[in-house]
Amino acid sequence: MNETFNPITWLTRSRWCLFGAVFLVASLWVPTVAWSMGEYSRMIIPQIRYKGGNYKPRPHAIESLLGQTAKRTSVEVKREARDMDLSDPDLFLYPFIYLAGDSAFPPFPDADLKILRNYLNYGGLLLIDDNSAKANSEFDDSVRKLVGNLFPNIPMQRISKEHSLFRSFYLIHQIGGRANIKPYLDGITIKGRTVLIYSSNDLGGAWSRSKLGHWNYDILAGGRFQRKMAVRLGINIVMYALTLDYKKDMVHLPIILERLRRSNLR
């Protein structure tokens, strides 16, 4: 038989199925190429475990935020929950940590305060999230005592709307979470770097999704738009941790300012 080879006719349905099966198996066999060197290069946000109170009212908050970060940005994440004590020797492998709660908690021991102070002074970032969705909550009271003990000479202040946090990825005009307790974030800035960010609006509640992709908690006031803004704010906080004031470089300013101007006109 002297037939010329025609790839179109040769690729019958059965052969396609066979190739598909071989590719699937092969892909399982071929070792996956490491996506970065060691997990520490990927974004992991440990949640701080503390005694007393409820340290994890939104168990899926961080996983959900990391999922959105991976989906929307070029940041490489490790999408898993990791709970950690401040005294954990591995704390300094993760320059961004998350502290949440919805009830009062006792003051941190001096040793933990010292570690946390060191952590923040030398490059770390702490996001504190009040999940109680109540104004002047018991958690809020405990947080303010904690921050007072942590930085007795630096008061926590409202973070300006001009801060890089609100333009590190998205241009953010509205600040909220699951609740809308305060239309702003508080924070502490040392030598030009914001080292502590405090949200009273239950950001974690707005981020949390189940494994099937459903939102775990209803938004209390602003509906979908508020949740969208809360997710964007979460991504901006991640970007700020990784790029700091990068968006304030002169090369970015003209374009960002023009967009802000147009947005204000609308």
């Binding site: 989906k71 940005t73 070029s74």
Partner: peptide, 16 residues
């Protein structure tokens, strides 16, 4: 900050 495969879920005007 984003690659072509990333879905930013926002128009360019809302991005920095």
């Amino acid at each position: 900050l984003r690659t072509l495969s990333d879905d930013v879920a926002a128009p360019t005007a809302e991005l920095s």
